[in-house]
Computed example of a mutant assay.
Amino acid sequence: MLSTVGFNRLDLFRTERDHEGKRKYLHPKVPPAVLQEVYGAILWSLGLGRLQNPVR
């Protein structure tokens, strides 16, 4: 299922607090190869898989 949201509605992943009591946040990053797979899956789910570059 696809859904669109505004960045202003998203929230960061909270973790523990630091020694001063301030919140700490995770900043996960998706490797480019995995992101390409996600883009390909989205294209296929929309019936546009033929637009995806062939794997070499």
Rank of each mutant, 00 (worst) to 15 (best):
Y25W: 15
L35K: 11
P28D: 05
I42L: 15
K29N: 14
V34P: 00
I42K: 03
S3R: 11
G47Y: 02
G21S: 05
L2P: 02
P32V: 08
F7L: 12
E20I: 05
T4A: 09
V55H: 10
R17M: 01
P32A: 05
L35Q: 15
A33P: 08
W44I: 09
S45R: 13
G21Q: 02
L46E: 15
Q36A: 14
Q52V: 03
N53Q: 14
L35T: 12
V34K: 09
V38A: 10
A41C: 12
T4V: 11
F13P: 00
R50K: 15
E16M: 05
S3I: 06
L26M: 14
S3N: 08
F13K: 05
L2K: 04
S45N: 11
H27D: 10
L35Y: 07
L48C: 12
F7H: 09
L48R: 14
Q52P: 00
R23G: 06
W44V: 11
E16F: 02
P31I: 04
K29E: 15
P31D: 02
T4R: 07
Q52I: 01
R17D: 02
V38R: 02
F13H: 06
V55F: 12
G47R: 07
V30W: 07
R9D: 10
P31K: 01
E37R: 14
R56H: 13
G49H: 06
L43V: 04
K24P: 03
Q36D: 14
R17K: 13
L48H: 11
D11Q: 15
V34Q: 11
Y25V: 04
P54E: 02
F13W: 09
H19L: 08
V30F: 09
K22T: 00
L43H: 00
E16R: 06
L35E: 13
P32W: 03
E20F: 10
L48V: 04
T4D: 00
G49C: 09
V55A: 06
